[in-house]
Each structure stands twice: as C-alpha cells, then as structure tokens.
Amino acid sequence: MEIKKKLGMSLATAGLGLALIAGGTFAYFSDAEETNNTFAAGTLDLSVDPTTIVNVDNLKPGDTVVRAFELINNGSLDISSIDLSTSYTVDDAKGDNQDDFGKHIKVLFLENADKTGDGWVIGDYNDVISETTLYDLQNMTPDAVENLNSFWTWLLGLGGEDSGLQAGDSDQMFVAFEFVDNGKDQNEFQGDALQLTWTFNAHQTEGELR
C-alpha cells in the first residue's frame, strides 16, 4: 500500500511539472536602446534697414528723392520671395483735393543691386519697380528679391545673385520717387502729406527631403 501511495504521488508531481512547462513562460535574452529625437522649426526673420525709407518735406512738383535701404534675412531659413505691398493715406491740408495725391508720386525705379551684379556694363538693371505711380502700385505685389536680368546677362555671368535671400544675407536696394510736374495747376496739393506704408512679406522656400 505504501508503494502505491508513493507511486501515485510521484505521478502527480510529474504531471504538475509537465503542466508548468506547458503553461509557463520561458526566459530569453533581450536588449533595448532609446533614441532621442528633435524636430526644431526654423525661423523667417526679415528686417529692413532703415525702417523709415523716406521722410522728406517741402516737396514741390518736379522734385526727385533717391534713397537706399537693405533687406536683411536674420532668420535661419532661406527666403524664396519677398512680395512688396503698398498702401498710403493722404492728409488733405485744405480739404480741396480733386485728385489722388498718389497719382502724382511716381516710383521711377526700385532696384535690387545684388541681383543686378555687373549687369550695368550693358545697361541691364534689376529694376523690381520701374515707372509706376503709387496709386497704381497699390494693385501690384512685385517680388523685391527676384533676379529679373535677361538671358544675355546670365549667359555672360553678369546677372548677380540668384533670386531669393539666403539666411544671414542681405540685398542692397535703391529707390527713387518723383513728385511729377504735369505742367498743369497742382495747387490743390500744397501743404498736403502722403503717408506711405511699404510692407515686405517674406516667404519660405519649398519643403525638401531631409
């Protein structure tokens, strides 16, 4: 009887062991490594120096004002284009204006000298704006950093920098305004003031595979 009991206990123990093997977990080798990743956005930071391009008084018909300023990319991203928007208000000193003062202020040119390069040798300037009034310019959005030089200046290597404005770079700009003398009575503009706002809107370059 003792033998049967011992044999039965042995069989039970063996069965329990098989159950543990069948339903339990196995130990195995493993290893893990973490990666630290960062997505940092770049910056577009355009500035204009000086911030006031024109501040002149006592203008009379026939006067021309020439000024220079810089467009500066202080950001970490390249700029593909800089659109120029124009708006202005007129202070009618005597309240007798029959015409818009902006029609009598002409932008003779707005040149990007860095895009011109040596093009002046053959008379090919990079005039972003040429011969238009402030009144008409309100409906235009020219790109101030586009290289407009002709095929021949490009072929001769005289075309200056490529379009756009790289991070950390600047473009030298020249502009001329004329109070047009139309040969007629312009007395209505005596004492008037025109407040011009030029807004330079910078745009990023296209996305790329990084």
Rank of each mutant, 00 (worst) to 15 (best):
G159F: 00
I72R: 11
R67W: 02
A144K: 01
A32C: 06
D171C: 06
E33P: 02
D118T: 09
N201M: 09
E206G: 11
A113R: 13
I105E: 02
W154Y: 06
A27E: 12
N126V: 12
L155I: 09
S130I: 11
G168S: 11
F189C: 07
T141Q: 15
D171M: 02
D49C: 05
F189V: 10
G62F: 05
P50Y: 03
S81A: 15
D99F: 08
N187L: 11
L44D: 01
F179E: 07
L18F: 13
A68Q: 14
T132D: 07
G17K: 02
F69L: 07
Y28L: 12
G123N: 11
A40M: 11
N55V: 01
D63A: 10
L77D: 11
L108H: 02
I105H: 01
L59H: 05
G157Q: 05
S10Q: 06
E34F: 05
V66T: 15
N112C: 10
M1R: 12
T25N: 11
K115M: 06
S85G: 08
I53C: 02
M140V: 15
L11H: 00
K103L: 13
E70C: 09
V121M: 14
A167Q: 01
G157T: 04
G75V: 07
F200L: 12
S10N: 08
K115E: 08
S87T: 14
G17A: 15
D171A: 13
F101Q: 01
V121W: 02
L16E: 00
Q195H: 14
Q195M: 12
N73T: 08
L77Q: 13
G75C: 07
V175W: 03
